[in-house]
């Protein structure tokens, strides 16, 4: 099939919501193969008619929707895996040195903290900026995985900063100081490492997609 026709299939898919390369690639081949088969079996059939017939056989818009939904689930899992793997990486040499330095710095800091609210608000704010940076960093990438990475971090914010951070905001400072300081140290170290790990996401997600589709580079 000529590059012009492949380009036309690509445009058709984009118009129907299949925008990014990592979800388009397999469908481009599917539609191109379906069109080629139709043109072999009915030699006079125009390209557009064959393409529309392939779209109907695929299940129309609903077919695309199902395809994208499945791809999104795959992407979510990949992002969770990448964040988890990066965080675990901070427990390995030589990054462990950085984690330990951070841990002992927070241990000293927690000793002198009388107000826990301000640092927790600070962590939340930093994380929001990280998500904004992530969206900006991947704005020109034609790939689903990096594009979804920033959106997927909503749950990270909710489960980590909101659920774990809210008690710090609403509980009395005296009751917080009664808790073992190593607990606060561990929480604050985690709150610091998490945005640092997320900052790696644009690089990791782009590399992951390029590994699968080297022709993109």
């Amino acid at each position: 099939m000529s590059p012009e026709k492949i380009e036309a299939i690509k445009k058709y898919l984009s118009k129907n919501g299949v925008k990014y390369y990592d979800v388009q690639a397999e469908l481009i081949d599917h539609f191109a193969t379906a069109v080629e088969k139709a043109q072999r079996e009915q030699p006079g059939i125009p390209f557009t008619s064959a393409l529309l017939a392939a779209h109907r056989a695929f299940g129309g818009r609903e077919g695309f929707h199902k395809y994208i939904e499945a791809a999104e689930r795959k992407v979510q899992k990949k992002i969770t895996y990448l964040v988890g793997k990066t965080l675990l990486g901070y427990l390995k040499w030589p990054y462990l040195l950085f984690t330990l330095t951070l841990l002992f710095s927070w241990r000293l800091g927690v000793e002198h903290l009388t107000d826990f609210t301000t640092p927790v608000y600070g962590f939340m704010l930093v994380f929001v900026f990280v998500v904004l940076f992530l969206s900006w960093r991947v704005r020109k990438e034609h790939m689903l995985l990096p594009k979804r990475a920033s959106e997927s971090l909503g749950w990270v914010f909710y489960f980590s900063y909101y659920l774990l951070g809210t008690p710090y905001i609403f509980r009395e400072p005296e009751s917080l100081q009664a808790i073992n300081p190593w607990f606060h140290t561990a929480v604050f170290t985690f709150f610091t490492l998490l945005p640092i790990a997320c900052l790696q996401l644009p690089r990791l997600t782009v590399a992951e997609t390029r590994k699968l589709y080297p022709e993109m580079s």
Binding site: F58, G59, G63, Y67, K74, K77
Partner: peptide, 15 residues
């Protein structure tokens, strides 16, 4: 099979 239904099944098996 609706062709669109095959790919999610393939992706699930891959996952």
């Amino acid at each position: 099979i609706k062709e669109g239904a095959l790919y999610p099944a393939l992706h699930k098996l891959e996952q």
